[in-house]
Design a protein around this nucleic acid. Sequence first.
DNA 1: ATACCGTAGGACGACT
DNA 2: AGTCGTCCTACGGTAT
Length: 813
Amino acid sequence: MDKVKALLIDVSYEDDENNSVLKIFVKDKNEGCWVYDNSFHPYFYAIFYDEKEIEKIRGMKFGEEKFSVLEIKETKMTAQGKKAHKVVFRKVSHLVQARKDFHDIGIKRFEYDVPFSKRYLFDNALEPGNFVEMEIEEVKTPKGKLYETKKGALRREIKSINKIDGDFFENAVVGAFDLETWSGKKFEVGAEPILMASVVSDNEKKVYSYETKKVKGMEMLADEKELVDTVTKKINEFDFIVTYNGDNFDFPYMKKRADKLKTKFLINGEEIRVKRHGLDNAVELEGKQHIDAYQIMKLLQRTGSVNTVKLDLESVSEKVFGVYKEKVFPSEINDAWKSGDAKKLTRLVDYNLKDSEVTYKIAKDFLPLFIEISKLTSQTLADTTRATTSQMVEDLLMKEAHLRCVIAPNKPHEGDVKTRTENPIKGAFVKEPMAGLHEQIAVLDFASLYPSIIISHNISPETLNCSHAECKKNVSSDGTYFCTKEKGLFPEIIERMLKQRLKLKAEYKKKKKEKGTDDKILFAKQWALKIILNSVYGYLGYARARWYSRECASAVTAWARGYIQETIKHAEKEGFKVLYGDTDSTFLLMNKKTKKEVEEFAEKVNKTLPDTMELEIDGFYKRGLFVTKREGGAAKKRYALIDEKGNLKIVGFEYVRRDWCNAAKETQKKVIELVLSQGNPEEAVKFVRKTIEELKSGAMPKKELAIMTLLQREPKDYDSIGPHVAAAEKAIARGKQLGVGSMLSFIITKGNEKASISDKAELEEFVEEGNYDANYYIENQVLPAVIRIMQELGYSREDLLQGGKQTGLSAWG
DNA sequence: ATACCGTAGGACGACT
DNA sequence: AGTCGTCCTACGGTAT
């Protein structure tokens, strides 16, 4: 028997005649292989009345195959406080049939929908991305079915398995590929040939093509078939195959072309699997991890880690890596390849290569983060990169619950999901600000407010309204109370993660300070914890969550509202004026008070708070601006601050919104800057006038006028046809492919006086330079963006306009 | 996840 | 019949 240590990469199973056999793909230094675990079988949990019922089930035959359960075992696991039995099956398909039958007989079942391979990872607390230590035996399979290994026709079987902690990312080979294809009239996956492909990995960078002219950096192949075969061979050398939108494009495309060209597109000897994943696809590979970097970017955008308007590789390259990347459009690709023009082809080769390079770089930079999430949740990297944050929390909870012998609650029925969704939970408190310009502002906020409340008040579904009389003191303003004697699942996990994160952050900082090194792994570890910690509260209120708890989620926000309101009261008692507050932050007007006094105030508050909660000082600002709403009262969630160094912080205003044109946004920013840093409204007025003049002259470039809006549904599904929908409809009529999720960039063009804004909206690409409605951009973009700011300083609309007496506005443009 | 802001469209009645 | 202002709804996007 061999002892083996190797990197855990994938987990799957295969069916033989009698059994579903679990297998994992591991890799030691050079070689990867499948190893099988015969001891692990599919199962779910059930609660039985008595032994008689169990005997009855043991004797029962299920399904068309007339199979019986493999065994029913007692466990230490509990569900709803009751001891559960494990009901074990030979095959996954048996489990699927039997879980229906169990339900029909009225037996309570649990965790019956946990996929077999996921089950294996949870039960053994294995962590993909970490090493595993195994005892392995090489055997000939009884049926004579042989499994090729390096040593011969033997199958490797696991006798024991454990994870080993460490950072082993270096042991995996990462490589990216990208295809350029011929664009036909109508797009259909695989309909047209692949013209070019690039492959970028740790070891090499290649661009392949055929038939066209050979240019520098291009490797010439005989034909498309050889291209497909070459790429197939190359990417089979990788452990992590990275694409950009390979779930929906590159992989399905390769498969289709391989079929057409009568060749094979196999990864590890197996066909790729295209699985439905919500609304789009996920491509799964055997024994390798397909990392779709586009999914990574989507997740980073959701968690607010990156903020780009579009998620195409050009925007990502520029916004995330600070490197300009040229876009080559489909028609140019066709042209370059067909013409064989050396200049055009060189540009295409470069484009194709950069696509793979950026894709590869996304993986290199962000995979450490996902590997850490993978370890925390015991999921494969491929699944982690496609998971929502709620799924991550749920996976973490299932893993941790299992270690505590707790069975997960079942997923809610659709009916419950509906009632949950229809009854939203009261959220945070936002204090109405004082409009106007303010000096010397201190901003305080609670560190990790929701997680710290969950820990402090021991908020968890099992600790809710416990039977102890003394716990009734730990009561929320909702009237719900939580046990103070036994720590709940949620607080326990969160507390551990919060402490761990602080430790990691300190370690990271120390290393940076002392050695000057930027330890990416340490950073990724704390980042992974941050993402999950920030998602726990959302999970409690997520309608599809197994551990959904309206009471818990509601208690968290109730306490949060209480704490911020108490802080505001406290500050006022100490002689501060409270300018504003939102959820966990409080803005104080210092008014002659010193920074030290603010610090002392924070200290005082902290003495009144539970140990795990902390009010921190976010910063001091020289000036701040809040504005009046159109309908009166001061606007919440919109303000601008400037610190002592002159750094501007603009929140909520048009400047930070994508659905306003650049001309308006930049003018607004300039106005804010002039007002806040120099207290110079006259200069601001001049600047506004300058922009207006430029608009009137007709010389404003169209890229300054484009308005970005996401098409959130199919055009026909809109009740109200706004400008972006109108622009989309016109573009579709011209043959442009648009649908849900398309980012639209449109311009309000010149038109007759009666036309509505929608009538004049056209996608940017169909608009000539200079064709814009100056009146619209002045009246509906620039002026609204600056007017409410200037109003706070006593300026009117007329003051902003040259001369102040404008007659026929429609004369413009 | 909830809280919040602001635009454009569209219905409606008053007025010309 | 056309125009104008008011009120409401639909919609997108942001803060935390």
